[in-house]
């Protein structure tokens, strides 16, 4: 099963993949990430994709022929990325930059600085607060984007549609 043309099955596979990732994060003791992955990846994303799918045909369009340019682009990008991995520091080594930069400070001093036990919350909301503000802007922008794409339907309701769209009733 190399290709999945049934979009409903693809959405379900995404949900299962997210749930397995969430379990993996839970096994790795990353509670915050596991909770986010389970709630956002497996939960809300699946619902929103299903709602979007109810406006679209269930099966993917069959493409015409083969796209050689795309294959070349993918291969070149992949080869570059594999080549770049040779410069990465060894996996899990203690002297890697990620363990030497600000992480030790956060782990050792965050309780003294802030007084709450969850270091992830301190990093996200206090030390790296501007990043989180940016994330909230991203969510807000996503909402505005969907609103601009789908929100103007009421005004055109009385006009006949240019082409018949297949819609399914959920209720």
């Amino acid at each position: 099963m190399l290709r999945m043309r049934d979009l409903f099955a693809a959405v379900m596979l995404f949900a299962i993949y997210s749930l397995v990732s969430a379990s993996l994060f839970a096994v790795l003791d990353a509670g915050d990430v596991a909770l986010t992955e389970a709630a956002v990846g497996a939960g809300i994303s699946t619902i929103l994709m299903l709602v979007a799918l109810s406006l679209a045909p269930r099966h993917e369009d069959r493409g015409r022929g083969r796209n050689l340019t795309a294959l070349v682009v993918v291969l070149v990008t992949g080869a570059t990325l594999v080549y770049a991995t040779w410069d990465l520091p060894p996996f899990g080594a203690a002297e890697n930059p990620i363990h030497q930069h600000v992480a030790p400070y956060y782990l050792e001093e965050s309780y003294k600085d802030i007084g709450i036990p969850n270091v992830v919350a301190s990093v996200l909301a206090s030390y790296r607060s501007i990043d989180t503000l940016g994330e909230v802007y991203v969510i807000f922008t996503a909402g505005i984007g969907v609103m601009m794409l789908l929100g103007a339907t009421r005004r055109r309701r009385r006009q006949p549609a240019d082409e018949p769209i297949e819609g399914e009733e959920t209720e």
Partner: peptide, 17 residues
């Protein structure tokens, strides 16, 4: 909001059909 917009759109499309 995203859910509302999609579900509302779904209703409009159903009405049109």
């Amino acid at each position: 909001l995203i859910y509302t917009l999609f579900a509302d759109r779904l209703r409009v499309v159903a009405d049109l059909t």
